[in-house]
């Protein structure tokens, strides 16, 4: 069964690549880069021939993601907890958050560049801005899922605030919370890379704009593939962390 699923997926992938190759050759091979040109470009990229500084750029992007995500999680959990556990504050401020969330975040980016400059800080700020909302909203939704009866039982059996949080609130919120944390991570990655694409001097997004701007389209596609692989790896790591958390707390 699994073999057939994999075979079907491979067939689809092969079909797409073939169609891509045929279509690209039929049109302009410079603009519609065929796979047969991407593969050598990818090899040159990974062998550090086309962009010898690739590791530094990737490492910078990863660090930006890491810092932005740490901020998004820390601030998101704190803000969510305060708004969720203080109903009055929640009623006053939570609707504002929802309204801000509805604004396409990319409109904030120019002001972030003005505030934080062209370097890593503006990318971190943009990744944070995108990533923090899902975390806050997940905590707000999660707090509402906690049953008052369970909290009362835990208190009756001698749990203080810390134990109530650990034994009742955290497990009750877990699936909502992990969902928000993963969505936040995905959006942080988007924010950092989009930030680099829109204006920067270093990082994966910068390399992509650079290659694209010089019409080195094969290199550009190879860089996109590397970005894709990194994003998939980050998501896989997040999935692993989520399964561990579930085993540990629920």
């Amino acid at each position: 069964m699994i073999g057939r699923v994999l075979a079907a997926r491979a067939a689809l992938g092969l079909g797409v690549v073939l169609a891509w190759e045929v279509a690209a050759r039929a049109r302009d091979p410079l603009l519609y880069i065929p796979p047969s040109r991407v593969l050598p470009a990818l090899a040159r990229l990974l062998l550090l021939r086309s962009f010898p500084l690739l590791p530094e750029h990737v490492w910078l992007t990863l660090r930006e993601i890491l810092v932005a995500y740490a901020l998004a999680v820390g601030v998101g959990l704190a803000v969510g907890a305060v708004l969720g556990l203080r109903p009055t504050l929640g009623r006053v401020y939570a609707p504002l958050l929802g309204a801000l969330y509805a604004v396409p975040s990319v409109v904030w980016y120019p002001s972030l560049m003005l505030l934080f400059g062209l370097g890593a800080a503006s990318k971190i700020a943009f990744g944070f801005l995108l990533g923090v909302y899902p975390v806050v909203l997940a905590v707000l939704a999660g707090v509402r899922q906690v049953s008052r009866e369970l909290v009362t039982v835990a208190r009756a059996f001698g749990a203080g605030p810390g134990r109530v949080f650990r034994t009742v609130m955290l497990p009750s919120m877990l699936s909502t919370l992990t969902g928000g944390l993963r969505a936040g991570l995905a959006l942080t990655v988007v924010g950092v890379i989009v930030g680099e694409v829109l204006g920067s001097t270093a990082g994966l997004g910068y390399l992509i704009t650079y290659a694209y701007g010089l019409l080195r389209t094969a290199d550009y596609v190879a860089l996109v593939l590397v970005t894709l692989a990194i994003v998939l790896a980050i998501d896989a790591a997040a999935g692993l962390a989520e399964r561990r958390a579930r085993r540990r707390w629920a």
């Binding site: 049953s147 009866e149 039982v153 208190r155 009756a156 059996f157 001698g158 497990p171």
Partner: peptide, 19 residues
């Protein structure tokens, strides 16, 4: 305050931890 060494409680809702 609650003192489970002396008092145990049962509620109308069984309020078991579902996980």
């Amino acid at each position: 305050g609650p003192d489970p060494r002396r008092v145990a409680m049962v509620f109308q809702d069984p309020a078991l931890l579902p996980w």
